[in-house]
Simulated scan of single mutants.
Amino acid sequence: MDSSLLKIFVAVSKHQSISLAAQELYFTQSNVTLRIKQLEKKLGYPLFHRVPKGVILTYEGEKLYPYALDIVTKVEETILKMKNISEQTLLRIGTSQANAIIRLLPFIEKLSVDFPTTQIELFANGTPQVIDALLEYKVDIAFVTGDPKHKDIVVLNEFSDDLYMVESKHKVSKNCIIGYREKSTHLNFFKQYWEALGNTEYTTIILENYEVMLGCVKAGMGRAFLSKIIVDKYHYTDDLILTKLQPNECNLETHLVCRKDSVPFIGDYLKQMQLH
């Protein structure tokens, strides 16, 4: 069976949408529809029901999905390993947004010097989404906040982020937590920390821009939990009170991780890399 047909089937199943699958695969909607029909003809079963908001799997489609996902994953993993069999020709890097600012550029600069022929692809999102991408073989390595402690993931390296609770130096801060992203490891930790202190009446503001976040903190609109590197980068150090949590209160260092069954060719190099 053509694995490319299964890849399209998996994409449509995941998104429950022909159009979103087409966007992910860089195909036209008509091409995706045609390929799904080809797969249905080969198997002799309809695989999707059309619903007002897209498509859902038929009974036969649900039976096929785990097998198709397994085949597509193994094919893509094999192709990547064969490309990198003698050298790291491609490295797909996943990173949380904070790490994209703190250490991604120095990391890429080191790679470009030591492995000038390696092609680099980037995926930036919140830590939970980056971990999902790693587990789905969509990235090879990932900078994530905290140790995922997942049976399929191994830690290659660890870096300190020098994290602080920040609040306005000149105004009384409102009982509000300001976060970068709704599904954020830093935000979830800060909420849990705040609630453990008995503060459950706080509100939350999400602002996907660190400079705007820091401006709001300075204005007394709330508190945030950030790396000092980010505070310094946007020149807010003199306008904020920075409170360092005790080591036993916070263990959110950055970890460079990969799948146990898919350690990059340059894995030993990554273990020795030093970044601030």
Results as ranks from 00 to 15, higher is better:
E76D: 14
G126L: 09
L64I: 11
E253Q: 11
I177G: 01
K151P: 00
V155K: 11
N248T: 08
Y26I: 03
L6R: 04
R92A: 14
D268H: 04
D239V: 00
P148Y: 11
D161E: 09
N175V: 06
A142W: 09
I71C: 01
G44W: 05
L111I: 15
K42W: 06
V172G: 00
F189T: 02
I266D: 03
N157C: 07
G61D: 03
R103Q: 14
V51G: 02
V217D: 04
H276M: 14
L34Y: 14
E249T: 01
P116G: 10
I101A: 08
T117Q: 07
V231P: 03
S262F: 15
I178Q: 03
T204D: 10
T78L: 11
Q23G: 00
S173A: 14
A124H: 07
T118L: 14
K7F: 06
K233V: 05
T118D: 12
V217E: 04
T118G: 10
R35Q: 09
R35A: 01
P106K: 15
N209Q: 06
K271R: 13
L5T: 02
E40G: 01
D152A: 05
V55G: 00
S184C: 09
A22K: 10
A100W: 07
E158N: 10
E253V: 05
T145H: 04
N84H: 11
I229M: 07
I71F: 07
T95G: 11
G146D: 05
K41Q: 12
F48I: 09
A22V: 12
L5F: 06
K260T: 05
L256P: 00
Y202M: 12
I71W: 05
Y180M: 10
E40P: 01
I229Q: 10
K42C: 00
E195Y: 07
H150D: 08
C176Q: 15
I102S: 09
E182H: 12
